[in-house]
Write a protein that binds this DNA or RNA. Structure first.
Length: 491
RNA sequence: CGGGGUAUAGCGCAGCCCGGCUAGCGCACCUGGUUUGGGACCAGGGGGUCGUAGGUUCGAAUCCUACUACCCCGACCA
């Protein structure tokens, strides 16, 4: 180890930037805070996309695509929605350039001013609901279950790699239903998909529940969410699913005739996860040796590295490696055989550890003689020697084992960093010095929540729906409370 | 927008206070050779309008002025 690495992944931005993912925030001021994701990082996102897309389709959703530009007037229609997003919108005002009078480059052609400015979508509710008006007439048109994979732009004052970038990639689902009940069920169904994905693919345990009014999506009646805990003790909102009531239907006049031949507004949901998940994945599992990618999302699950002195040896090793590679591929495992001669084995070992490849196989002359292969697992960094017989099943088991181990590790981290507190002193002390999730009673008022935020920077991350109610007294005001809620400092 | 910092090769930096010959180092890159079971070594080589504009000076990376950009902290962040 000749290089300096950030200790305990405390500077995550450095991981992203310098080591493996190579996601730079664009430096050009014109696209400040937008993300440049290099191929390896993007491959992780593609795996996430593929997995989620399949789940959405299995539950009856279809993909569609709507415009990047939203007429400004659309935003004015839903009052709290415009309030929530107005401060972070990029605006298109002109549609043409012309040669600069001084001959240097181009300038905006003032004559090509748009009559109405266009907003680059920060989210697509408005333009989608404007379209839905024409798509929905009767209860027979419902439910309308649509998802969109797209980019959105939110001109944040301050950006953080992956976690809050000015432009990001996401999916946004927008559904319309005949009844309130059905829309709420949809919201919860999606939340379950998100939670399942986080826990069983990303190996990141999450808390499920809903947001306090203060943290709610602009324009929603209820916002459900999953919250994860990062290794530095800060919370990360990993996905949200909103019950929008009839707010958008009323704002965009989307009515349908029900079976009784009466007109009613439709009920709506919207839900999304973004490239923030890539950041969350990294921050949940990485260690001092680099990324740790759970097997189910790893672009490369197994890497094979040859060790040899003479070219003849490489020929023999390659033969063996290709046999193993195709045996593993038949089991659906993605395998890379790195036979580049320009890097030493030691260099490659480190390289793939950075990249978080779950399993590494090394084959050298010794293994050729003994019919063995050296197997190293990324999560524990343990090395062992396997007989090559039946190697594909051994590796399949190992990958499953690693996936499970990562989840358990993250789960016990969360358990060790979840604290139940009953007094204000305890609360402040825990937030300041221990970080993590803090379970405390809250009187249910926005006022108290904001006071707590001002004094400690902690916010209510989630009000869990899958825990038992427990009466108590608000940790801040002393007023009665029905259940504990989850506080934390968040990204 | 407030407070602090930075800008020199693809990346990371030194040089600046106290102006001076051809602007230097590490990594990376290229060529040749020896290497290869945990980031190899030797030799040679390529790459810079020192953020931009102006000023002072015989002479500016270095001093002065303005501008621009980026980073950290804060405000902001469904």
């Amino acid at each position: 180890m000749a290089k300096d690495f950030p200790t305990r992944a405390e500077n995550y931005a450095q991981w992203y930037n310098d080591l493996v993912i190579k996601a730079d925030l664009a430096e050009n001021s014109a696209v400040r805070g937008c993300m440049v994701i290099k191929p390896y990082g993007y491959a992780i996102w593609e795996k996430m996309q593929a997995t989620l897309d399949k789940k959405f389709k299995e539950t009856g959703h279809m993909n569609a695509y709507f415009p990047l530009f939203i007429p400004k007037s659309f935003f004015s229609r839903e009052a709290s929605h415009v309030e929530g997003f107005a401060k972070e919108c990029a605006v298109v005002t002109h549609y043409r350039l012309k040669g600069a009078p001084d001959g240097n480059g181009v300038v905006v052609d003032e004559e090509a001013k748009l009559e109405e400015e266009l907003i680059i979508r920060p989210t697509s509710e408005t333009i989608i609901w404007d379209t839905y008006r024409n798509w929905i007439q009767s209860y027979r048109d419902l439910p309308l279950l649509i998802n969109q994979w797209a980019n959105v732009v939110r001109w944040e004052m301050r950006t953080r790699l992956f976690l809050r970038t000015a432009e990001f990639l996401w999916q946004e689902g927008h559904t319309a239903h005949a009844t309130s009940q059905e829309a709420i069920e949809e919201t919860q169904k999606i939340l379950d998909i998100y939670a399942d994905f986080a826990e069983n693919w990303m190996a990141v345990p999450v808390l499920k529940g809903y947001k306090s009014p203060n943290e709610r999506f602009a324009g929603a009646v209820d916002t459900y969410c999953i919250e994860a805990l990062m290794q530095d003790g800060k919370a990360l909102q990993a996905g949200t699913s909103h019950f929008l009531g009839q707010n958008f239907a009323k704002a965009f006049d989307v009515k349908f005739l029900n079976q009784n031949n009466t007109l009613d507004y439709v009920w709506a949901t919207s839900w999304g996860v973004s490239t923030r998940l890539v950041g969350g994945l990294i921050m949940a599992h990485s260690d001092d040796h680099g990324l740790v990618i759970p097997p189910k999302l790893a672009p490369v699950q197994v890497v094979i590295i040859p060790i040899y002195k003479k070219p003849e040896q490489l020929v023999q090793i390659s033969e063996k490696a290709h046999l193993i590679k195709s045996a593993l591929e038949k089991k659906g495992i993605s395998v890379k055989f790195d036979e580049r001669d320009s890097f030493t084995p030691g260099w490659k070992f480190n390289e793939y550890e950075f990249k978080g490849v779950p399993v590494r196989l090394a084959i050298g002359p010794r293994d050729l003689e003994n019919g063995t292969v050296e197997v190293a697992r990324r999560d524990t960094l343990e090395k062992s020697v396997y007989q090559i017989t039946d190697i594909e099943n051994k590796v399949v088991n190992l990958l499953e084992n690693i996936q499970e181990n990562l989840f358990q590790k993250a789960l016990s981290f969360r358990e060790n960093n979840t604290h139940q507190v009953d007094t204000w002193d305890e609360f402040v002390e825990t937030i300041e010095n221990k970080a993590g999730f803090v379970l405390a009673h809250w009187d249910g008022t926005t006022e108290t929540e904001q006071k707590i935020k001002e004094e400690t920077k902690a916010t209510i991350r989630v009000i869990q729906t899958d825990t038992r109610p427990e009466p108590g007294k608000c940790v801040y005001s002393g007023k009665p409370s029905k259940q504990r809620v989850v506080f934390a400092r968040a990204y």
